[in-house]
Design a protein around this nucleic acid. Sequence first.
DNA 1: TTGACATCGTTGCATTTGCAACGATACAAT
DNA 2: ATTGTATCGTTGCAAATGCAACGATGTCAA
Lengths: 142, 142
Amino acid sequence: MSQFSLDDFLPYQLAVVSARVSREFSQIYAEHFDMTVPEWRVLVHLHNAGPVSIREIQARVDMDKSKVSRAASRLEKAGFLTKETNAEDRRLLKLGLTEQGYARMEQIIPLADEFEQRLLKRMGADTDAFRDTLLKLLKEDS
Amino acid sequence: MSQFSLDDFLPYQLAVVSARVSREFSQIYAEHFDMTVPEWRVLVHLHNAGPVSIREIQARVDMDKSKVSRAASRLEKAGFLTKETNAEDRRLLKLGLTEQGYARMEQIIPLADEFEQRLLKRMGADTDAFRDTLLKLLKEDS
DNA sequence: TTGACATCGTTGCATTTGCAACGATACAAT
DNA sequence: ATTGTATCGTTGCAAATGCAACGATGTCAA
């Protein structure tokens, strides 16, 4: 009879830690603002990259395009971003932050930084090695 | 104006890696058998721990009790486990693997082992340190 | 030009999810 | 015994999710 411990199973460990960390962080900003993880990701990317299409966000932020689309619609209705069609390729949208969108990010980013600092403190000195290993896991196949 | 890179944000990195790894693994066994992640977790725990309650699984496997309950019902209908009420405390159930349930685990566990070996190979030598750091992230507060 | 094919963003739909009831059972205090 | 409180597993429900259409637009070749 084979032995197998779920506790030591790497995919399980990753899932548990990721879910807990993500939950912890989302509680921080859900407490102050009303925002979901997809919305947070869309706003962050727009804040960094400037006006881009749904497709571009989808690729850079690891979310299905329908998820990006719906998050963008909610954010538009809430006044954090605007949609306009790209004049050069009218299939594309150009999403851009509004003043209010920038202001909101300026409020949240410090909270994100602070949260990450707390995580790093928990992790101790091994931070860089940990991140490197994490990225190795993304490599396909083999 | 503050700078913030989602790519370097630890909760995001964790979420992406975890989702990818989990997806990759679930494809492996969804290809051979018809099973979801919650069902896999329930079966694994029963395989290790013997007959236990829903509550026990919930605590040890990091899932909401409704999730455990529904997974257990599906597994019961599929013939992989049985439910009986605990005689000493009739609020509790006692879930136990059937012959078929054991057989299914004996099929899947080798696939899980093989998959983990592939992950470890990707990660290189830093495996142990990585796991340690991962667990540190679970420590509450501060 | 036309036609075949690809890509964009949205939406419909079935499934899954988290959360809050709920009934049933246990237990402790009076 | 009765009452109040806690815990168990299930279920209802609203929201979120992934996936596959779909219409609209672009591209390229004949």
